[in-house]
Design a protein around this nucleic acid. Structure first.
Length: 262
DNA sequence: ATGGTTGAAAGTCAA
């Protein structure tokens, strides 16, 4: 069964409702994992999504911050909303498709500005969040599972516009990369985007602060789609839709796509 | 070295 799955940090699901509908119309993905919905679940607009065929909606929400959702054309049953480092923040929702594939949608804490876990509580929480996730997946030994979301780490030199300039910048520091690598090995995960595009600069996020984000092109690949090694070979393709970053009133993140054929 | 923008929501806080 072929299906197209997307991960997209939407930076407000209410403000971006029409942008999500445009993505649905233009690319017709089967499943969309959203992060930074910034809305309580009861205030998430669902009518237009359902009219476009996305009848199955799972969400974890809170006021103003964080928030994740899965919008799906395929029947999906919620299997958990985990609070990995006990932060009491809506950063995870998981569901299971009828073909037995489990999808974890995660919004890893950004971690603040100072890359020091003593000076900066938010950085400490980010690393703790990754450690708790790692422990959880080691215990649960996932199979036929997809992990996607804004992981807020760009692990490789070619995942950032300048490796040298960003070594001390939260999102690309060695300790974060090490934590992400520990998470990756926790479930025998395969980064399916890099499986399909093994080399070259690749970004999913460009700051709002640049005068011309496209010309400056100072991006980072913070958004990821992973699959366990049993289903990773069934990925036909993966890409980041950079043009979406240039749509009217965009999110600062572009959506990541993966095409599976299971 | 610094400041630049956006969003939620009404203060700033977070990214």
């Amino acid at each position: 069964m072929p299906f197209l799955i997307v991960s997209w940090n939407i930076n407000s699901i209410r403000l971006r409702e029409d942008l999500i509908c445009r993505l649905m119309r233009e690319f017709r993905p089967d499943i969309i994992g959203l992060q930074e919905c910034k809305s309580p679940v009861e205030n998430i607009p669902t009518e237009k999504f359902k009219k476009l065929g996305y009848r199955f909606i799972l969400a974890a929400g809170q006021k103003s911050y964080n928030g994740v959702a899965i919008l799906s054309k395929l029947r999906i049953q919620e299997v958990g909303r985990l609070d990995f480092a006990n932060l009491e923040q809506a950063r995870h929702v998981a569901g299971e498709l009828e073909n037995g594939v489990t999808i974890h949608n995660v919004y890893v804490p950004a971690g603040g500005d100072v890359p020091d876990r003593v000076q900066n509580l938010k950085f400490d929480q980010k690393l703790n969040y990754l450690t708790h996730m790692t422990t959880w997946f080691k215990r649960h030994k996932p199979k036929r599972t997809i992990l996607l979301g804004d992981l807020n780490i760009a692990p490789r030199e070619d995942d950032v516009w300048s490796h040298k300039s960003l070594l001390g910048v939260v999102s690309h520091t060695p300790i974060e990369v090490e934590h992400l690598e520990n998470l990756r090995s926790s479930g025998d995960w395969c980064d399916v985007t890099r499986q399909h595009i093994p080399a070259g600069k690749l970004y999913s996020w460009w700051s709002y602060r640049a005068k011309d984000w496209r010309a400056a092109d100072r991006g980072r690949r913070l958004d990821h789609i992973w699959a366990t090694s049993d289903i990773a070979p069934s990925v036909q393709s993966s890409c980041i839709m950079k043009d979406v970053r240039g749509w009217t009133k965009p999110s600062d993140h572009a959506p990541v796509f993966a095409h599976f054929d299971l």
